[in-house]
Structures are given as structure tokens and as C-alpha cells.
Design a protein around this nucleic acid. Structure first.
Lengths: 154, 154
DNA sequence: TTGACGCCCATAGTGCCCCATGATATCGAT
DNA sequence: ATCGATATCATGGGGCACTATGGGCGTCAA
């Protein structure tokens, strides 16, 4: 399986380290990488994490912008300055820096959530809150669509 | 990794020196350079720092950015005039000259920010302010376009 | 002399590498 | 199916190496 799926919550130890779930690590390993790249999500209290190809994907998006416009500078700043590397140690752990804590609010536990091509890091509570919100929105959307279909049929 | 990424804040000592982050130093070293060139950013209170290739890259950008040759010359002069040239000492530190202080406002701490092919030097507060602004602008843009690279499949 | 600068070394804090332990899952033999 | 052996994984901790930072001491120029 080469996709990031499911979610796991792990504990931060006394030295501020946390294990990246083995199933996620194996994906990185298969890609031949030993480093992770993290971005602070623009609209969520979570980190978007992946291998170097995550950065490449964003770089491609950046190339589409007019290189002399403000937006291009903004995106470059967001990608290159606002992000950070997470180095995996020999046991597949990363150190939870202030960089991570500030944006996500994590302190004792971290929830790793798969997002297909990459994964996210959350405070467990924030993750749970977000999860229920998403479910509500989807249910609401489905209800609306069903209603409209019924309306057409009649 | 041979790209300037992430950001670090270091302290200026009593002799006016500050350590260039080891992470960045190793990139310079790998490129085989022992000298750094610093240019005043046009739109930002920051310095753009990198190897010799930084000069040509910015010259090209200048040409395209301003159609009036005379103004471009002025800007080129502004960029290169008291042109920054930062020497690394044996311990990977540079001395923070007035050239740096004037344009960036740094006094006690310096924030080094990656910009992929080069890096920037900021006053920590200015950096943080810029960061917030950039995130706001990007979030706004995303709301308008529903731009989400992450949401794409594969 | 004084102050800026280059080169040297000292040290505290942090990050990284290595190994240990316990819990859980997997497998094989009976 | 049961039970024991083995593997995998999250977690804990020791200890070394590196890095950031502070400071000493020459040299050179004003």
C-alpha cells in the first residue's frame, strides 16, 4: 500500500520525540527517503507532511504563477520559509519542535492522519473536532443533493 | 537536501557576530562557495543572501520587472551599490554590519529564512509580521479559487 | 591607543545514534 | 484450537557529537 490511510495517535516522550506510524514510514522508505517535509496548513490547525515530492508538487503549482507577481512571492515564502524539515531518527521518530507545537497545539499526544498522497499531524482533540465537523458537512451536502434529486423526479 | 528551507532565529553576540544556521552552511559548502552575496530585497525589509549566481538571477528579474531602462538601472544600482558581501569566519559566523542593520532593522536577533535557491535575513518581528500577512493573502486567494493542490488525487 | 577584525579555544545545550524493554501481533507445531 | 516462539512496534533512556554562543588574544589601520 503506497497511500497514506487511516489515523493513529502516538505519545510524545520525555525528550520530545514521537514515533511516526510504521505504516506511514514504510511508504516513505519505499520512496527511498529519510526526511519529511512539513507545511503549516493555511486553514487548519494541522501540519501537512510528506516526502520531498510534496514540495515538488507545490513547486509545480508555483511555476504556474507569474513569477513577478506578489502571489508567487507569497507562495514561495509559504513553501520554503514557513515550512520545515522533520528528520527521522534511526527508530522512525521525529522531534516535536516548537514549530509544530505552535501551529497544532500538540503537547502530549499526536494524531497522524492519512490524506492519500501525504499525511497530517493533529492535536487529538482538534482532530476529533474536525472529524465530526467534516462528517456533518458531508451529511448535510448529501441531504441537499438527495432532496434535489427527489424534486427533479417528481 | 540542497535547498534552503525552513527558518531559524539566532542571536547576535557582543562582537556583532551571528551564526549562519549549520543547515544553510552545508548547502553553501556543497556548492563549493566560500563567499556570500547579500542584496537588499526590493519590496521587503529583508536581505536576499546566496552564492554568486544570486546576482545574475536578480538582474534578470529586474530587467523583466521594469520596462523603463533608466529605472532599472537605478534599481540595479540600489541593489548592488554598497553591495553586501558576507564573509564566514572559521565557526560559520558573519558579522552583522550597518549595511544589514539599516535595511532590516535587526539588532539583537536575526531570523534566517529559506527561499529555495537562496535564503533571507530578517528582524524576527518583521519576519513574523510578514508571515502572518502572507498566510492571510494565501488563505483569501484559496477561498476565491478553491485552490487546493493537496486535494488533488494521485 | 583604540577599535574593528581574523583566528583560536571553551562550554552548555541540543540533536542524533544506539540499545533496552514491554506490549501486541504473527506464525508454527502439537 | 492452544500454546509457545518470533517478529514488529511504540516507548524509554544513555551517551556522544555537533552547534550556537561567549570570550581571549593577536594584527592591522586609523
Amino acid at each position: 500500500m503506497n497511500r497514506y490511510l487511516g489515523h493513529v495517535t502516538n505519545r510524545i516522550d520525555a525528550k520530545g520525540r514521537v514515533s511516526v506510524p510504521a505504516q506511514f514510514r514504510s511508504i516513505i522508505q519505499k520512496a527511498g527517503h529519510s526526511e519529511l517535509y512539513a507545511l503549516r496548513s493555511l486553514h487548519l490547525p494541522a501540519l501537512d507532511v510528506g516526502g520531498p515530492e510534496l514540495l515538488t508538487r507545490f513547486d509545480k503549482r508555483l511555476e504556474q504563477e507569474d513569477p513577478f507577481a506578489e502571489t508567487a512571492d507569497d507562495m514561495s515564502f509559504y513553501l520554503h520559509a514557513d515550512g520545515g524539515f522533520l528528520k527521522l531518527d534511526g527508530d522512525g521518530r521525529i522531534t516535536v519542535t516548537d514549530f509544530i507545537r505552535e501551529h497544532t497545539g500538540v503537547s502530549v499526544d499526536v494524531t497522524f492522519a492519512g490524506a492519500n498522497t501525504h499525511f497530517q499531524m493533529w492535536h487529538p482533540d482538534q482532530f476529533e473536532a474536525h472529524r465530526t465537523k467534516v462528517r456533518q458537512r458531508l451529511a448535510e451536502k448529501r441531504r441537499q443533493e438527495t432532496m434535489s434529486v427527489l424534486a427533479e423526479g417528481s
